[in-house]
């Protein structure tokens, strides 16, 4: 379940998915198959740009946008793309939307673009997007792919926000740039450094897995 490589499309998790109602396509990305906490995909942006809540949200939304658009295009072209060149085509499609996102973010805010830096361009190699294109959009209808992308995108944004909020609270003493603690609060600088990203992700994973285990046992 944690390995979404598509060897056996008709057995196991992916097989059972076929029979489930379409709402499930949306819900699964939020929690049960959360891209960060369960699939552990797209770690590079997760760790690198989740240092403040705003950066995390912006990164999550940018990724969700690319994911949604590429899923739509891939699933609508799925009968047109020959199997042999599908990966190249997917990359081409994803790269296009990433480039577009890059320009749009620059137009929205130069500061935000500076804060996200190279990681916008790096959305193109976010394995979450390619894995959804390959594992889902290329095999399903446009409608289902939209639901899948929305679920996964929101799940990814939610996970990034979870990290970003904790890191900004401890590392900056603020949330969305608004001071949260008394004035002489001691910031935990490590939290906004890369190391803090690993710590926070580990703690969220512990919480996630602990709740899951509890549910499984009860």
């Amino acid at each position: 379940m944690s390995n979404p490589i598509q060897d056996k499309p008709n057995t196991g998790f992916w097989g059972s998915l076929k029979d489930s109602p379409s709402t499930d396509e949306f819900i699964k990305g939020l929690w049960r198959d959360n891209p960060v906490f369960v699939q552990v995909l797209g770690m590079c942006p997760t760790l690198a740009v989740s240092n403040t809540a705003i950066n995390a949200l912006a990164m999550g939304l940018a990724t969700a946008f690319v994911l949604l658009m590429s899923n739509i295009l891939v699933s609508s072209l799925r009968n047109f793309i020959p199997k042999q060149v599908r990966i190249a085509s997917y990359i081409l499609i994803i790269a296009t939307f990433v480039t577009m996102t890059d320009y749009v973010i620059q137009a929205i805010s130069v500061d935000l673009h500076k804060a996200l830096g190279a990681f916008i361009s790096l959305i193109v190699v976010n394995c979450l997007i390619l894995s959804r294109a390959e594992a889902f959009a290329s095999k399903n209808t446009v409608g289902k792919s939209v639901l899948d992308a929305l679920g996964m995108g929101i799940g990814f944004t939610f996970a990034l926000f979870c990290l970003g909020a904790v890191r900004e609270l401890l590392g900056n003493g603020s949330l969305f740039g608004i001071p949260f603690f008394p004035e002489n609060f001691q910031e935990w600088i490590v939290m906004i450094l890369p190391a803090g990203g690993f710590f926070t992700l580990a703690i969220w994973l512990i919480i996630f897995n602990a709740t899951k285990e509890k549910r499984a046992t009860t």
Binding site: Q186, W188, I189, L193, A195
Partner: peptide, 10 residues
């Protein structure tokens, strides 16, 4: 090491 990264001034 964690303290050094977290509270570099102190």
């Amino acid at each position: 090491a964690v303290l050094q990264a977290a509270f570099p001034v102190a």
